[in-house]
Computed example of a mutant assay.
Amino acid sequence: MTRLSDHELWAYIREDLPYFDLTTHLLEVSSKTESLSIITRDKVVAACTEEAARIGELLGCEVYYSVASGTKVEEEGLLLELQGDGEVLHQAWRLCQILLEYACGMATHANRMLQDAHNVNPDCEILVTRKSFPFAKRFTMRALLIGGVMPHRLGLSESVLIFENHRALYDDEAAFEAALPQIKKRCVEKKLVVESESLEDAKRMLQLGADVIQMDKSVPETLAALVAYKREHHPHATIIAAGGINRKNVIQYAQTGVEAIVTSSLYQAGMADLTSSWKSL
């Protein structure tokens, strides 16, 4: 995914720094050159370090060091070092650190969840839902992609996913099933994904031509049975699990043999434990 643009970064800067830093203005901070280092206290996957470095540049700092996004950084490892006069460095300080705390937190959690799944099922992908923080989709998606997961849906316009509420638009289930072959035909280059909550319904949807079955809030035993049925009768179909899956139970679900796990939990990963160090030059 492309980096966040200067326009987006300036919007972030102006939200927190609309005019000037009142505290440093009152303190009459020295104009001598200083160095700011942002350091991780834990092992993390670095994410959005390029954006953090660019924020420093936009505010007038010089980037002395920046680790590449996607790099696994050990405890006490350096993520970013900026240099500049005291006033501009203080302006960049919290903006950069907070951005990195969120981005590294999501990327690290995503990477660990993916590794947990791959340890028991190398063919199982972790897909993050479109339920990102409002107004923060590009930032959160970039951080999670750096962590190694993929988007389930980026929005409503690029994929076909039939939920129970969509079925309710028809007079009854028979009418929906009668319409499904035509829906499948009109998908053309898209896969037809149908959400199901029972083994028998999932089997029926596969028989009617669904390319992907998304099982919602299903127990692992049901998923394993559906995967076995799919492999025997519809080997080209895909089974994905969704609903209430997080890092605590991802192994249990990955072991069922599903091709993917859909989760929103990565948006609640929390912030990475970062700190900063200052020195005069």
Rank of each mutant, 00 (worst) to 15 (best):
Q115V: 00
V73Q: 02
Q182K: 14
Y19I: 11
N246C: 13
V258Q: 05
E259M: 11
I240L: 14
E50K: 12
T275S: 13
T256C: 01
H109S: 10
V88E: 04
I38P: 00
T275D: 09
H109P: 00
C104M: 14
R3S: 15
T23M: 12
L27A: 11
D216L: 08
K184V: 03
W10A: 02
I126H: 01
L79I: 09
K191Y: 00
C124F: 10
Y253M: 14
A254T: 07
E200T: 14
Y19R: 10
A143C: 15
I39R: 02
R3H: 15
D201W: 06
Q91E: 10
F139R: 13
L145V: 11
E200M: 14
A103F: 06
I55F: 07
E125K: 12
I13R: 01
Q207A: 15
S35A: 12
K248L: 14
E173H: 09
L281P: 02
A92C: 02
H152D: 01
Q97W: 00
E8M: 15
L154P: 05
L4G: 00
R112F: 01
L145E: 12
M106V: 01
M113L: 04
N165G: 05
G56C: 00
S218M: 15
E57P: 01
Q255V: 03
I126A: 11
L114N: 10
E101V: 11
A202R: 09
T108L: 03
A174E: 15
Q252H: 09
A46N: 07
R130F: 03
A225L: 15
E259S: 14
G77S: 11
F135E: 14
K203H: 13
L89V: 00
P151T: 01
P181V: 00
T222M: 14
R167M: 15
N246S: 15
V73M: 07
V160G: 06
